[in-house]
Amino acid sequence: MSTLIFPGDQLNIDSEQPTTLGPGLYFDPVTQEIGPTNAGVEVIANTKRGQTVYVDYDSKRYIPAVGDYVIGIIVGQFSDSYKVSLSSFSSSVTLSYMAFPNASKKNKPTLKVGDLVYARVCAAEKELEAEIECLDSTTGQDAGFGLLEGGIVIDVTLGFARHLLFDKDFPLLKILSSFTQFEVAIGVNGKIWVKCEEVKNTLACYRSIIDCQKTSVSEYKNTIKSHFKNIVDAAGGK
C-alpha cells in the first residue's frame, strides 16, 4: 500500500513496535517525535525486528549514504588521497590511495584529475567529508570498481538512477541492448556512464536515456528506436 506523505504529516506506523527510520524521516530530539521531512510515498516494511519506514522521493542533488554505488570525477590529488566530486557544487568526498585493490605504500593508483571513477560510499557522516572506496572492503578484492575510460556521462534524477540500478524489470537497458552493445555503470548519485564501440551508438544511447526520463515506460521502445534510426539516417545522408 502506498500513501503520499508531506512534511508535517502524521506517519501511519504502529507506535508500539520498534521502528527503523529510513530516508525522508526526522526524529526530533526535543519533542521525541518522528515526522516526514520530504514529499513522497510512505513505505512501511515489516522486518524480523519490527518495522522499517521511509519516504520514497525523487530529487536531483545527491547526499552520500554508506553503501551507495556512485560515479565521481577526480578533482584533486593529495599525498595520500584523491578529492572526488559526486555532483557539481556539492562538497567533495575523499578517495584514499589505500582504498584500491592490492594497494600498498609503494603500489599507488594512477588516476589523474578529470578521470571518472566508479566507487562505493564507505563512510558518510553529515558533519564530516564522506569517503568512497574502489574495492570490496570485506574481502579487500577488486569488485568491478575503478576507472571508467572513455564513454559519456548522463545526468539523470536520483529516482531514475535507482530504478535503473535496482528495478530488475526496468526495461530500458534491455531494450537498449537489442540495438547495440554497450558498457554501462550506474551511480545512484544520478550519473549514468555509457560506452559503445562506436561514437554514434553512444550518442544514440545518450539521447535515448535523456528522453526516456520524460516518457512513460511503454514508450521506451519507440523512443529508442527513433533515436537509433536517426543515427543511421544521419550516417547515410553524409
Binding site: I73, V75, S85, S88, F89, K112, G114, D115, L116, L148, E149, G150, G151, I152, V153, V199, K200, T202, L203, Y206, R207, N230, A234, K238
Partner: peptide, 25 residues
C-alpha cells in the same frame, strides 16, 4: 567555471563533433 566535466566526457564530445554529431542531435 565550476561545473566539473570529466576528461572522458570532453573527449567524447570532441570525437562526436569530428564525426559530425552533437549531443542534442
Amino acid at each position: 567555471k565550476d561545473i566539473e566535466i570529466s576528461t572522458s566526457e570532453a573527449q567524447f564530445i570532441l570525437e562526436a563533433l569530428k564525426q559530425n554529431g552533437r549531443l542534442d542531435g
